[in-house]
Simulated scan of single mutants.
Amino acid sequence: MSLSAFSASPSSSSLSSALAPYGWDEAWATEFAPYADQGLLPGRVVRVDRGQCDVMTADGIVRADTAFVTPHDPLRVICTGDWAVLEAHGKPRYVKTYLPRRTAFVRSTSSQRSEGQILAANVDHAIIAVSLAVELDLGRIERFLALAWESGAQPLVVLTKADLVPDPVTLGHLVEDVETTAPGVQVLTVSSMTGEGTDVLAAVVGGGTSVLLGISGAGKSTLANALLGEDVMEVQSTRDVDGKGRHTTTTRNLLALPGGGVLIDTPGLRGVGLFDAEAGVGQVFSEIEEYAERCRFHDCAHEAEPGCGVRAAVDSGELAERRLESYRKLLRENQRIVAKTDARLRAEIRRDWRLRSAEGRANYSAKRTGRA
């Protein structure tokens, strides 16, 4: 069923015009067609809160119960950005299911647990907000980028509060550092106070759905207000002690932008744990994986092996030692998370650990007996 045919039905003539600003298109209409025959209605989830959610429908915002879509798997619970399938009538209204997700931004809930937490669904752009009011944490940026690439969205790094770095040379060096950390990713400098860069950002996110990510105080809510053209999100002033902003947003909210596109604002993330994001890590450190192709051994650990292409790049200055250490750290962390739910991988890790331990004991014994 085409979008035009679906929209022509008497009960849903305003569907296309009402939901198009929230991302509705022909592909979603095709996915929804079987439910339309059952008399159900589509809508986009704009907020989730304690077993209920607000859903934007052709008739406006509807408060709906999520009892039918609360599975044991935390990655399958309904979240902001989902396209919900709603009952047409009833008190309360129930969400019966949601349409298959195109993308999903997922992080681990804790480094000590194996559950994932889905932050946003059906996202096209992942805007990583980084404040220039404090020292750049390149490692944290790499974490956000790994999750963004893994989600299927296109990352974008936005350096906020650019007005606090008046020296253009210093600002240029900061941008260069982030660009080196984020290969293949656009990096923008933005000041919500002066308006610098907000027009460029609005043009980038004008099509599709964008999720705004960052730690507390990164200026996300201020940036969201700048894109919305009005003070929709509450903003608190920065602290005089260290120039950091205060935690403001407490829920994930989906908002239609006046210039087109949809924005999901999220609370500040205290922890940015990876969750089965090996491909995303590889994308962030693509240059390391290219150097690895030059290694003599296919299973090179890039430590002390002869003919290591990665170590050669570090020794020549082509690759920063910090990048290699960050790459190793994120891979190890991701492996630990995956191993908690993958018995085969756990066995491989234990076997590798035993082999390394045996090799270490053998080398130590050889040195003691003079046979090294």
Rank of each mutant, 00 (worst) to 15 (best):
E196F: 11
F297S: 15
D342S: 07
R296N: 13
L156V: 12
C300T: 09
R346C: 14
A84P: 00
R356M: 04
S12D: 05
T250M: 10
A358M: 14
T181Y: 01
A27E: 04
W24S: 03
P267C: 09
V48S: 05
L188H: 02
Y35N: 09
V262Y: 01
H89M: 10
L355G: 08
C79H: 04
T103I: 04
A279C: 06
A148I: 05
S286H: 11
V281P: 14
H298D: 09
P100D: 09
E31D: 12
R93C: 10
L99R: 08
E290L: 14
G271A: 04
V204S: 03
A226R: 08
A8D: 07
L227F: 12
R113V: 09
L355P: 00
D37C: 05
Y291I: 11
F105S: 10
V123A: 04
V123M: 05
E278P: 01
T70N: 00
V130Q: 01
R246I: 05
G51F: 04
V310E: 06
G195M: 07
D54Y: 02
K96C: 06
T181H: 00
A292F: 11
K91A: 12
V211K: 00
P34C: 13
I349A: 12
W28F: 10
A104V: 08
G282V: 11
Q112F: 11
I78D: 00
S365W: 07
Q335C: 12
S111A: 15
E318P: 11
T109M: 11
A146F: 05
E87L: 04
L255Y: 14
Y327H: 10
G229L: 07
T238V: 14
W353M: 15
V262P: 02
L3I: 02
S13G: 08
G139W: 01
V55S: 05
W149S: 04
S2K: 04
L319Q: 00
V134N: 04
I349Y: 08
I337S: 11
V272A: 13
T369I: 02
T249M: 04
W24P: 02
G39Y: 05
A58F: 03
H89L: 13
L15C: 00
D352V: 06
V55L: 09
P92T: 15
T181I: 00
E290K: 14
T198L: 12
D137N: 15
G214K: 06
G184L: 01
V310F: 09
G260W: 08
L75I: 06
L138I: 09
G370Q: 06
W149E: 10
D231P: 02
G23Q: 03
I337C: 09
R44P: 05
L319C: 01
A18Q: 13
G184N: 04
S191V: 10
G260R: 09
S357W: 07
L40A: 12
G81I: 03
E150G: 00
L330G: 09
L145E: 11
G309K: 05
I118L: 15
G280S: 07
V175A: 13
A148C: 06
A343K: 15
L138H: 02
T194F: 03
G268V: 05
E142M: 00
A5L: 01
S286V: 15
L331P: 00
Q154E: 11
W353A: 15
G207K: 14
C300N: 09
L331T: 07
M1N: 02
T30K: 11
L156I: 10
D65P: 01
V157N: 00
R252S: 15
